[in-house]
Amino acid sequence: IRVTEDENDEPIEIPSEDDGTVLLSTVTAQFPGACGLRYRNPVSQCMRGVRLVEGILHAPDAGWGNLVYVVN
């Protein structure tokens, strides 16, 4: 998935696990201090948080898609 520190920055590609999840530790390896991800909902244009359970980030209902995710 494509992740950036700010919406206007160049994104970095972060690998997902075989089950489609992303480990928070993978994100923090590239973005120290990150505690989660958010993205701009293409329909509402509002920022939406990615579900985080026990250090594992779960894809939105429509999958990770071609969105750019921003670190929290």
Rank of each mutant, 00 (worst) to 15 (best):
1 I>S: 00
1 I>L: 05
1 I>R: 01
2 R>Y: 06
2 R>V: 04
2 R>T: 06
2 R>E: 03
2 R>I: 04
2 R>S: 06
3 V>F: 03
3 V>I: 15
3 V>H: 00
3 V>L: 04
3 V>S: 03
3 V>Q: 00
4 T>R: 08
4 T>W: 01
4 T>E: 04
5 E>G: 12
5 E>I: 06
5 E>R: 08
5 E>P: 03
5 E>K: 06
5 E>S: 08
5 E>Q: 10
6 D>T: 11
6 D>C: 10
6 D>W: 07
8 N>L: 11
8 N>H: 14
9 D>I: 11
9 D>Y: 14
9 D>C: 14
10 E>A: 09
10 E>I: 06
11 P>S: 07
11 P>V: 09
11 P>I: 14
11 P>E: 06
12 I>T: 10
12 I>E: 03
12 I>Y: 04
13 E>Q: 12
13 E>H: 13
14 I>D: 02
14 I>W: 00
14 I>R: 02
15 P>W: 07
15 P>Y: 09
15 P>Q: 12
16 S>Y: 14
16 S>A: 12
17 E>K: 06
17 E>Q: 14
17 E>S: 08
17 E>I: 08
18 D>Y: 09
18 D>I: 13
18 D>N: 11
20 G>H: 09
21 T>F: 03
21 T>V: 04
22 V>R: 01
22 V>H: 00
22 V>L: 13
23 L>S: 10
23 L>Q: 06
23 L>Y: 06
23 L>T: 05
24 L>P: 00
24 L>G: 04
24 L>Q: 04
25 S>Y: 04
25 S>V: 06
25 S>K: 14
25 S>F: 04
26 T>H: 12
26 T>N: 12
26 T>Y: 09
26 T>G: 06
26 T>P: 00
26 T>S: 14
26 T>D: 05
26 T>R: 15
27 V>L: 13
27 V>S: 05
28 T>G: 12
28 T>Q: 14
28 T>Y: 07
29 A>G: 10
29 A>W: 06
29 A>Y: 05
30 Q>G: 03
30 Q>R: 15
31 F>M: 05
31 F>L: 03
31 F>N: 00
32 P>F: 02
33 G>I: 04
33 G>S: 09
33 G>A: 09
34 A>F: 00
34 A>N: 02
34 A>L: 02
35 C>L: 13
35 C>R: 13
36 G>K: 00
37 L>V: 02
37 L>E: 01
38 R>F: 14
38 R>N: 12
38 R>L: 14
39 Y>Q: 00
39 Y>S: 03
39 Y>K: 04
40 R>I: 15
40 R>S: 08
40 R>W: 14
40 R>D: 05
41 N>H: 11
41 N>E: 15
41 N>T: 14
41 N>Q: 10
41 N>S: 15
41 N>L: 10
41 N>A: 11
42 P>Y: 02
42 P>Q: 08
43 V>P: 01
43 V>D: 08
43 V>W: 09
44 S>E: 13
44 S>F: 07
45 Q>M: 11
45 Q>C: 05
46 C>G: 13
46 C>P: 05
47 M>S: 08
47 M>F: 14
48 R>T: 13
48 R>V: 15
48 R>K: 14
49 G>Y: 11
49 G>V: 13
49 G>W: 12
49 G>N: 15
49 G>T: 15
50 V>E: 02
51 R>N: 12
51 R>Q: 11
51 R>P: 12
51 R>V: 12
51 R>A: 11
52 L>Y: 04
52 L>S: 09
53 V>D: 06
53 V>A: 11
54 E>W: 03
54 E>P: 03
56 I>L: 09
56 I>D: 05
56 I>A: 13
56 I>E: 05
57 L>E: 01
58 H>I: 10
58 H>G: 07
59 A>Q: 08
60 P>V: 03
60 P>I: 02
61 D>K: 10
62 A>P: 11
62 A>I: 15
62 A>C: 14
62 A>Q: 14
63 G>A: 04
63 G>C: 04
63 G>L: 02
63 G>R: 04
63 G>W: 03
64 W>V: 01
64 W>E: 03
65 G>E: 07
65 G>M: 04
65 G>S: 08
65 G>V: 01
66 N>I: 04
66 N>W: 03
66 N>S: 12
66 N>Y: 03
66 N>L: 01
66 N>K: 09
66 N>C: 00
67 L>P: 03
67 L>D: 07
67 L>W: 11
67 L>E: 08
68 V>F: 04
68 V>K: 06
68 V>C: 08
68 V>R: 07
69 Y>K: 04
69 Y>H: 06
69 Y>F: 08
69 Y>M: 02
69 Y>R: 03
70 V>W: 08
71 V>D: 04
71 V>S: 01
71 V>E: 02
72 N>Q: 11
72 N>R: 12
72 N>E: 15
72 N>F: 09
72 N>I: 14
